[in-house]
Amino acid sequence: MIKINNLDFAYNNTQVFKNISLEFQKGNIYGLLGENGVGKTTLLKIICGLQKPQNGSVSVDGFTPSKRLPEFLQNVFLLPEEVITEDTTPERFIQKIGVFYPRYDFALFNQLMGELEVDLSKKFNELSHGQKKKAWLACALSLQTDYLFLDEPTNGLDIPSKALFRQVISQHCSDESTIIISTHQVKDVENLIDPIVILDRDDVLLNASFAEITEKIYFEYGPERLQNAYYTEMLPGGYINVMPNTEHEESNVNIEALFNAVMKNKETIKNLMK
């Protein structure tokens, strides 16, 4: 489990996080959402130990990430937004780093490269951006770490590749592993992520599962704009209204509408979800 308590973090004079607390439970695929610059990437880096908080504590299964102990590092992997271009083939690269990870599986890597349709013979720097991302994803999943952090993983992927991405993530995620996907492209991960964490500057606006969200918030698809809705958006053929679930009705979460509703009613929804 990842526990973040009273975290403060700033880049020089720019405050990114102020006294935020957050928990990530094992066995889930979290969607980490937020506007540009709220600190999604920074949060992932702090959890991985690549940045050190100024105040507060971060604990991953009892380890302090910033100490970068091997026992901690062998259970985490971060796939950054900008994929790193190595002058080697993905196969050689994974053989080079895989030996450090206790559950690394080379057969799984080959299987994933096949599923993601990546050319095994090419070097990273000879692959297209999307192919590189998929190759890195195959590397990341084949390490079978307990925690996998994906920063904007679908950026640069074409439509079939996005479907492949969802497929391999859902297939290769176990009950013991936790995946945190930081993204702007909520539609790409709509049926993949649960729970959702919405970050704001200096605050965590939401950290809840779909079940918890639909218990308190109702997503109404209808012909008209409702007055008591937190947020309303016109869709082809009508409106989606995000509103309090006073009648305890079931509905399907529309992540984009939810995100906009949360951003427009920060305190209200935060208090509602407490």
């Binding site: 970068r68 091997p70 950054p80 790193i84 450090f100």
Partner: peptide, 11 residues
């Protein structure tokens, strides 16, 4: 960017 792989190597 490129140093992340080195920093996160479990050693």
């Amino acid at each position: 960017r490129k140093g992340i792989v080195y920093a996160m190597l479990p050693a």
